[in-house]
């Protein structure tokens, strides 16, 4: 069943701030098997000029899941079957590294939903700001809902 196009343009503010913790950064770095000390040791991070341990470049993907219940993907009205979803594209613009202790506010917006063959592509952007209101990062992602596009009639094909 096709995804609900009425979601295009909708914004989904995270209902709470996301507090970046040293231990979560460590756990994320462990999960990607990256031993870099800047992800674990505050002194090592400071030696590189950072105020505390920093997060790996793709860490902010956790926002997608921390606030999934309040985002578009989990909204039954979107009509998405998550088992049919694979990731299509992703980008991160990092205005500065994410640092332990950051208290981050985020808003997710559905930019586009479109058919590509029998698949549907859902593009969203997440804008992340810090407690001082400064922009931290922009995440753009496209997920693919496989095989859910409405069948096309021969006149449209």
């Amino acid at each position: 069943m096709p995804v609900n196009r009425e979601f295009i343009g909708r914004e989904f503010p995270a209902p709470a701030a996301y507090e970046v913790g040293r231990e979560h950064i460590r756990r994320f770095a462990d999960a990607i098997d990256d031993p870099h000390p800047a992800y674990r040791d505050p002194a090592a991070a400071r030696a590189l000029g950072h105020p505390d341990v920093i997060a790996p470049p793709t860490f902010l993907t956790v926002l997608n899941f921390r606030f999934a219940a309040d985002g578009p993907v989990a909204d039954p009205a979107l009509g998405l079957d998550y088992a049919m979803v694979v990731h299509g594209e992703q980008s991160f613009e990092l205005h500065r590294p994410v640092v332990a202790g950051d208290v981050l506010t985020s808003v997710q917006r559905v930019d586009d939903i479109r058919d590509v063959g029998r698949n549907e592509l859902i593009s969203t952007v997440i804008e992340v700001t810090d407690a001082g209101g400064a922009a931290v990062a922009t995440l753009r992602g496209t997920i693919v809902s496989r095989g859910t596009a409405a069948p096309r009639s021969s006149s449209q094909a």
């Binding site: 870099h36 800047a38 992800y39 590189l48 000029g49 950072h50 920093i54 790996p56 470049p57 793709t58 694979v86 990731h87 299509g88 594209e89 992703q90 980008s91 991160f92 613009e93 990092l94 205005h95 500065r96 590294p97 753009r140």
Partner: peptide, 14 residues
């Protein structure tokens, strides 16, 4: 780079 904080943008298509 040695400093992961040097990465400013990163994009991929799967």
């Amino acid at each position: 780079t040695g400093d992961p904080g040097a990465l400013q943008s990163y994009r991929v298509r799967f």
